[in-house]
């Protein structure tokens, strides 16, 4: 089936079987391999992207749901010359090791901070409940997110 949607600001029209998952569209069709697959039960969060400004696991979205939406992936938030503050914070705080969970973690973290002003570290931990990291013990991920949350005035949505 044909669907039209935007990814990282760019319009796409693709023709894929209706049981195709968004993560497959991103990785296979559009070759955006920054979004990763870490499980087959929607538990790990490695495939988290933004869909119309909301963090979703892209393994839970089917192609027919894509018509008219805007998707943002890790490739769409910043590059090495112009990092998103969350990307910069992850690097500064050593919030990643193998890097595999990192794109999903960053996309979830951005949504968390945007939607929840005045986050404390417990709230950050609870907000990461859907994202598994096997390397960092989450310690530095929480620190990185807190540093971005702290820099953001509580009044700003």
């Amino acid at each position: 089936m044909k669907v039209s949607f935007k990814v990282n600001g760019q319009a796409h029209e693709i023709d894929v079987p209706p049981n195709t998952l968004l993560v497959e569209v991103l990785r296979e069709t559009l070759e955006l391999t920054g979004t990763h697959v870490g499980c087959d039960t929607s538990q790990c969060g490695a495939c988290t992207v933004h869909l119309d400004g909301r963090a979703v696991k892209s393994c839970t979205v089917l192609a027919p749901q894509l018509d008219g939406v805007e998707v943002t992936t890790i490739e769409g938030i910043g590059d090495s010359e112009n990092l998103h503050p969350m990307q910069a914070a992850f690097r500064e705080c050593h919030a990643l090791q193998c890097g595999f969970c990192t794109p999903g973690m960053i996309m979830q973290a951005i949504d968390l901070v945007e939607k929840n002003p005045g986050l404390d570290s417990q709230a950050i931990r609870e907000g990461l409940e859907g994202n598994i990291c096997r390397c960092t013990g989450y310690h530095n991920i929480v620190r990185a997110i807190a540093s971005v949350a702290d820099a953001k005035p509580a009044s700003v949505k």
Partner: peptide, 14 residues
């Protein structure tokens, strides 16, 4: 980190 935080890592499945 620069490649991992930007989605430019290159894992086998990529």
């Amino acid at each position: 980190d620069l490649r991992f935080i930007t989605g430019d890592g290159r894992y086998t499945d990529d």
